[in-house]
Computed example of a mutant assay.
Amino acid sequence: MTFNYKRLSFPTLLLFLGLAVISCAEKKSETSQTETTTKKTSEVKSDQKNILFFGNSLTAAYGIDQEDGFTGLTQKRIDSLGMDYRVINGGLSGETTAGGLSRLDWFLEDKPDVFVLELGGNDGLRGIKVTESKSNLLKIIDKVRSKFPDTKIILAGMQIPPNMGQDYTGEFTAMYPAVATEKGVTLIPFLLENVGGIPELNLPDGIHPTEEGHQIVFETIWPYIENAIN
């Protein structure tokens, strides 16, 4: 499955690409609220295990209620199974791999038993050198492992529109399996499988999934989460 650009009309594709830039500068107030909520929920019983989703606006469930995003749906599924795990939403709208690397320490105050790394999409939309993005992803994984060697790490792969050229697009897509292989982490090949580029499953900006879209994303990631916690 690749990003279904053929279903987008030319004006819609232009809107998609234009709003991609906007997505990298979304309101700080939403960001602050997300991180404050995360911090407030950090005071839990010491024997509870943590699943940390560390990413950008996709993780943050931009445009919908956070509980209806794929992280919130993960918590609901875990609760329904009676499992003692807390899902932490470390999503920050507009985040890049470099920004993620710089703020990671704050989220590593408590051990993540499962660490889901969902970054890089904004790098691709900005045309940041793939070598730089890859280096940052490797460093993030190294930092997590250095502090918590037993943490299970899952890397969420991403694809981008071809506006940066086929060579860049191909190099970007190949970055994720390369990182996963180099570091021996679990790879979700494409986070937005069956969602990306499908208008009815995304908000009017053409970038962020609707509630229905997030449900599909959740079904894509759940087998990987389930395998990590069993």
Rank of each mutant, 00 (worst) to 15 (best):
P199K: 11
P161L: 01
E226V: 06
T173Q: 14
P209H: 13
S133D: 04
K76S: 14
L81V: 03
D113E: 13
N194Y: 05
I160H: 03
L52F: 09
G72Y: 07
G213E: 11
E212C: 00
K45L: 05
G165Y: 14
L119W: 06
V185Q: 05
V130L: 08
L187R: 05
F54W: 02
G82C: 06
G121Y: 13
L104P: 06
L191Y: 07
M83G: 01
K152P: 06
G165K: 12
L73T: 09
P204Q: 10
R126D: 02
S80I: 03
L203I: 02
I64C: 07
A178Q: 14
I88G: 01
N89K: 12
P112L: 00
P161E: 02
E193K: 12
A178T: 15
V44W: 04
K111S: 06
V44D: 00
R126Q: 10
P223G: 04
K111D: 01
T169W: 09
V130S: 01
Q75F: 01
F190R: 09
A61C: 00
L187C: 03
I188R: 01
E35L: 15
F218S: 02
F148R: 02
P162N: 14
V21I: 13
T186A: 09
F54Q: 01
G63M: 03
P161Q: 05
I188W: 02
K183T: 09
A20L: 12
N227G: 15
F190S: 08
T38I: 01
L14I: 14
V195S: 07
G121H: 13
L192S: 03
T96D: 08
Q159V: 03
S80W: 00
T71G: 00
Q33L: 08
Q159H: 11
K147P: 06
K27C: 10
V114C: 02
D150S: 14
S146N: 14
Y176D: 05
L201G: 10
L119H: 02
K28M: 07
T38Q: 13
S93G: 15
T186N: 04
F107S: 07
I51A: 10
L92C: 08
K152L: 04
I229M: 00
I198Q: 07
T31V: 13
G124S: 10
D47C: 04
V116Q: 05
K111I: 09
T41A: 13
V21D: 03
L192Y: 08
L104D: 00
K49E: 04
N163C: 06
G72K: 00
K134E: 06
S146W: 12
G94F: 06
G213H: 11
E26D: 06
P199M: 02
L58G: 11
N202G: 10
I128M: 09
E219Y: 01
I225N: 03
T131I: 14
E118S: 03
T97W: 08
P223T: 05
T151W: 04
E132Y: 09
G206I: 02
M158C: 06
G69I: 05
D110M: 12
G91N: 09
L137S: 06
W106H: 13
H214N: 15
